[in-house]
Amino acid sequence: MLELRPSCECCDRDLPPDSRLAMICSFECTFCRNCAEGPLSGTCPNCGGNLVPRPIRPAAMLAKYPASTRRIFKPEGCIPKA
């Protein structure tokens, strides 16, 4: 089950569980659409995988399976893997 992390790893922007701006890779690294499409050019800087829109968990399921509260922020910013 996806963690639904609460923020962008690059700029620390809040990304609530119902945000249509959240993008993830297959390892659930989470970025806002601005960072994903801007400096990252659609590629996860952690694993090199592609970034896709994060699914939205329906409210009833969100109540039963809440989103993560663990923030991951990398102050060095968005630097894609070479």
Rank of each mutant, 00 (worst) to 15 (best):
I72R: 07
T43K: 13
Y65T: 10
G49Q: 01
C32G: 08
D14C: 05
C44G: 00
K64H: 14
S41Y: 08
L21G: 09
L40N: 03
N50C: 05
P66Y: 06
I79R: 09
N46A: 09
I56P: 00
A22C: 06
I56W: 02
P80R: 03
P55R: 13
A82C: 11
A60R: 15
L4K: 08
P75T: 13
R20C: 03
L40Y: 10
D12H: 10
L2N: 13
D18A: 14
Y65I: 02
P66R: 03
S41E: 15
M61I: 06
C29H: 15
K74I: 15
E76Y: 08
V52W: 15
P6L: 04
I72E: 07
R71G: 00
T69R: 15
N34T: 13
T30Y: 00
P39T: 11
P17N: 14
L4F: 04
A59F: 00
I72N: 09
T69Y: 02
P6I: 02
C25M: 06
C35M: 14
I24C: 01
R13T: 00
R54N: 01
P75H: 10
G38H: 04
C32K: 05
R71T: 00
P6F: 04
E9Q: 13
G38V: 14
I24H: 05
A36Y: 07
K64M: 12
D14I: 05
Y65V: 10
P66N: 04
P39F: 04
E28G: 12
R71L: 01
R54V: 03
A22G: 14
L2A: 15
C8L: 02
A36S: 12
C10H: 11
S26H: 12
I79Y: 04
C32Q: 09
Y65A: 03
K64A: 13
E76Q: 08
R54L: 03
R57K: 15
L2H: 07
E76D: 03
L40S: 05
P75C: 01
I79Q: 14
V52P: 12
R5P: 07
R5I: 02
S26F: 05
C47G: 04
R54H: 10
C47F: 10
G38F: 14
F27N: 14
I79V: 02
C10T: 12
A59H: 07
R5S: 04
M1T: 14
I24G: 11
R57I: 06
D12I: 00
S68K: 11
I72Y: 05
G42W: 04
A82N: 10
K64D: 12
C10D: 07
G49V: 01
F31G: 10
R57H: 03
S41D: 15
R33D: 05
